[in-house]
Design a protein around this nucleic acid. Structure first.
Lengths: 89, 89
DNA sequence: AATAATTATGGCATATATGCCATAATCTCA
DNA sequence: TGAGATTATGGCATATATGCCATAATTATT
């Protein structure tokens, strides 16, 4: 048996923040009239990745976010124009 | 010898965008009167990570960006209130 | 209802973001 | 100038974001 703790090396994952961003992305994508498939194709991201972002499963990188904003042709600050839920404690 | 291409699996890294964000972060951090060390400590991120972000070496994740914004106590949209350089085709 | 379109999931491979630790380089100021 | 503070770099380990491919689930359309 090996009960050794491999190392906590805790990484942050802001679940609520990531979900809030997901909601905002869906809103903007719909407003701009894109399907996930179109957005994927035009941005060069994979469809699965877009779906995962919109379902709040993953923590996209800055470059990914920039690619989305560029394709949707919306100012970056608009992509972040939403209320960030309070940090849980 | 093995000249086989392992797979291109190209991932995006928006160097200019990442650098523009770096500049914005430095600006806001200074304006709010934080050192990298303080920002690291209060945000729970590592100092090396903050330095790497501010030098445009890495592509931070959304959660990391949110943590920075939360600590600096600045609205998210302000963190993204900068001009995104044109995509080099 | 049947079909088509759209969105969501899952697995696998690879690149890389991050933590942690150490050290170097640069900047500040007495 | 020299000491302390701040920022930058490097290496290693681990977690995970992403691509790619397939398939399932859901939603729209006829």
């Amino acid at each position: 048996m090996n009960f050794v703790q491999k190392s906590a090396r805790k990484r942050i994952f802001d679940e609520d923040g990531v979900k809030a961003f997901a909601t905002q992305l869906i809103k903007i994508r719909n407003r701009e009239g894109y399907t996930q498939t179109q957005l994927a194709f035009e941005s060069g991201l994979s469809l699965s990745q877009i779906a995962r972002i919109e379902t709040g499963r993953i923590n996209p990188t800055l470059s990914t976010i920039l690619a989305l904003g560029r394709t949707l042709n919306v100012p970056l600050k608009d992509m972040f124009d939403f209320e960030l839920p309070l940090e849980k404690e």
